[in-house]
Design a binder for these strands. Structure first.
Lengths: 138, 138
DNA sequence: ATACAATTCATACTTTAGTATGAGTGCTAA
DNA sequence: TTAGCACTCATACTAAAGTATGAATTGTAT
């Protein structure tokens, strides 16, 4: 936030300087007015694009970012969340077990708990619910 | 495309007119140069924002639209695609059967064919693959 | 120190998913 | 008209997924 304010302030100062510079350079006849106007136009066009990109980027981030708070609210443990992510990527219990170096029965226990906590009947439904709650990406 | 060219041409003409207008209004001393510059700056700022928004919007659209051609390439039939969508929404075979008014064994047949065509081992993997291929939404 | 939550694992079981095979129906293009 | 495709359904099977229960271990907070 401080960074934003600093950048904004620097930008305003730079623009005011530019105003003065362009004014005097035109009045003294050292620069053609078309060139000055063209430069200013280009500058503000670029500024508009950059600011717009930043704003949209921020919106996009907040809409795809995972809701960490919701995970806590649901009471999902760290390990359970890991398993949930692997389920969403399409792995079987056995594959998840191998990836996380535990037994398949452990994964089954985790999956059962995940289904209860997400109020889902199946793993496919759990994926859907997790997506809606913005708990997992996509 | 024609529309874009037309708008662009109109924009260029308008700007050239503006250039001439601002030049003479400054030379005749009827308008202060600060105001002219400010107007131009504001104008190009807005143009920058609008153009950027359009470009980004177009990118967003093409990234969320379903790839109808890919569905054909994979050889997925209309019914199979319906079943795929229901799978992705988290339904069981029995539930899909009830929703589409057919027997569960019919759905099983469809699911088997879908898995072969998508080169998936499980329905969860099929969901993942279908998403990557932009065949289904989300 | 102990109560608690998280993680791990096992067994035994039920349910769902997925495979393989065969077959009937209806539509459509050659 | 018939060959082919999409859709339907059934049976019989194997493989996963999911449930229930119990238990051991470990780190942590009171």
């Amino acid at each position: 936030m401080r960074k934003t304010i600093f950048i904004f302030a620097a930008l305003v100062i730079a623009l005011l300087s530019l105003f003065q510079l362009s004014k005097y350079s035109v009045l003294t006849g050292s620069t053609k007015i078309e060139i000055v106007i063209a430069c200013i136009a280009l500058l503000f066009f670029v500024i508009g694009v950059i600011i717009n990109k930043r704003v949209l980027h921020r919106q996009k981030e907040t809409s795809t970012v995972i809701d960490q708070q919701k995970i806590e609210e649901l009471g999902l443990s760290k390990r359970e969340y890991e398993v949930l992510c692997e389920i969403a990527s399409g792995l079987s219990n056995k594959e998840i077990a191998q990836k996380l170096f535990v037994s398949e029965s452990t994964i089954k226990t985790h999956v059962s708990n995940i289904l209860v906590k997400l109020d889902a009947k199946r793993r496919t439904q759990a994926i859907q619910i997790a997506k809606e709650l913005r708990i997992i990406i996509q």
